[in-house]
């Protein structure tokens, strides 16, 4: 967590400096805006990681609320961790799913609608909606083998 947060904050600081120096050498707003965008891209998640690092000394999971004891550094952040230190549930992974390809097909048709006519959008949007409902319901049920 600590290195991840430093990495991202470093990106933000770098772009902050470049954005400022670019603005004061060129007074060009388009480029400056994009550089400011890159600055926030680094700072926002960087601050998030920093926050969790400080609060839990690197809890492995996204806990909300307070815990009384520090969870301690994650095994993947410790030099001396053994594989057994990672025991427990790593994460749960979905099995096979038909919805990604359905969603992509919907997006494909929707974008073609811009080129070939609005009626296609009806098809595209419907497919996307079905796929979104499908993928959400699947997450709740926990996927399908």
């Amino acid at each position: 967590m600590k290195i991840e947060s430093r990495f991202l904050i470093g990106i933000g600081v770098f772009f902050g400096i470049i954005a400022i120096s670019y603005w004061f050498t060129s007074y060009e707003d388009g480029g400056t805006l994009m550089l400011v965008g890159a600055t926030t891209l680094g700072l926002v998640p960087g601050a998030y990681y920093f926050f969790w690092h400080r609060r839990f000394q690197g809890s492995k999971y996204f806990f909300w609320g307070r815990t009384d004891r520090a969870v301690g550094t994650r095994p993947e952040d410790r030099d001396d961790a053994t594989i057994a230190d990672g025991a427990g549930v790593v994460s749960s992974f979905p099995g096979s799913s038909i919805w990604p390809i359905t969603l992509a097909a919907g997006a494909f048709v929707l974008l073609l609608a811009f080129v070939f006519g609005t009626w296609l959008a009806l098809v595209g949007v419907s497919v996307i909606l079905i796929a979104l409902i499908g993928v959400t319901a699947e997450s709740r049920r926990g996927g399908r083998y």
């Binding site: 025991a87 549930v89 749960s92 979905p94 399908r144």
Partner: peptide, 10 residues
């Protein structure tokens, strides 16, 4: 169902 990965000692 989802796959759950459990590290084991073997």
């Amino acid at each position: 169902m989802t796959d759950v990965i459990v590290p084991q000692i073997a």
